[in-house]
């Protein structure tokens, strides 16, 4: 069984210190230190989360705003370290969070391909081999030699997606990325993702669109205020997501606000 596990989360908790006024200069810190008033309001974004994802599973992470979905993804991507508990991932994790965040605006598209590839932990040869297909997939043409600061946001997203996908992820993290680019490119991305799904890649997908989730995933996790309340069958998770009392309350609140406007 051990070989088939892609992600194993063991009792993960994540605490953030919310201080009303952020102390980021020495004077403030010193004064507060002397007065012994460095107090933090604790906020647990995630509480005791345990789950395992098997290889080839496509897991939807559902939950309302502030439920801790993005925090969980960041922990899996290795960007955040959990306050408690441990996470183990088996295989190359490629996070598709905010495409092109690692780009240097002064660098050209071509240079950014190498830079971003290196950030994802690849060697020069690896990127050189795939350089042409990245450029081709991105459909940027001659713009590849223009500094990224002159790109439109759609172009940037296209380049980001192209780099991230060509590098053969084993665990793919998608955080509402499919809402970028024009229809044509989005379709191309979906085609590519489907192709990877057939190849048995493990996917973690965060989206509020139940339709998209149904297209991609086969399992679901439901997060509520940082707690894992359900993990397992996708349809059941969607059912919980749609029928949760809070969901209704939020909807009513939104309607009320709309009326006021």
């Amino acid at each position: 069984m051990g070989k088939n596990i892609a992600i194993k989360a063991d009792n993960i908790s994540m605490r953030f210190n919310l201080s009303a006024d952020k102390v980021d200069n020495l004077k403030e810190y010193f004064i507060r230190f002397v007065k012994r008033s460095i107090t933090f309001k604790e906020f647990w974004a995630l509480k005791n989360i345990s789950f395992t994802v098997e290889k080839g599973d496509r897991v939807a992470i559902l939950g309302y705003n502030g439920a801790g979905k993005s925090t969980l993804l960041k922990i899996i991507a290795g960007v955040l370290k959990p306050t408690e508990g441990s996470i183990k991932t088996y295989g190359r994790v490629v996070p598709l969070l905010e495409l092109g965040a690692g780009f240097d605006p002064q660098y050209t598209g071509a240079e950014n391909i190498y830079l971003y590839g290196a950030i994802l932990g690849h060697t020069k040869e690896f990127i050189e081999q795939r350089y042409d297909s990245i450029v081709e997939f991105s459909e940027l043409g001659d713009f590849i030699d223009v500094p990224v600061k002159n790109y439109s946001s759609g172009m940037r997203a296209r380049l980001g997606f192209s780099i991230a996908t060509v590098v053969e992820p084993e665990i793919l993290i998608l955080d509402e990325v499919l809402s970028v680019g024009d229809v044509k490119f989005r379709k191309k991305c979906m085609r590519y993702i489907n192709q990877m799904l057939d190849g048995g890649v493990t996917v973690l997908f965060v989206s509020h669109s139940v339709n998209q989730v149904r297209k991609i995933c086969n399992k679901g996790i439901f997060l509520d205020h940082g707690e894992l309340t359900f993990a397992g069958d996708l349809e059941k998770a969607i059912e919980i997501y749609e029928n949760d009392e809070q969901y209704g309350r939020a909807k009513r609140r939104r309607r009320r606000r709309m009326n006021r406007i």
């Binding site: 960007v79 996070p95 969070l97 965040a101 690692g102 950030i119």
Partner: peptide, 9 residues
């Protein structure tokens, strides 16, 4: 900062 927040390096 932008990179550190998004990708592990």
């Amino acid at each position: 900062a932008a990179m550190i927040k998004k990708v592990y390096v």
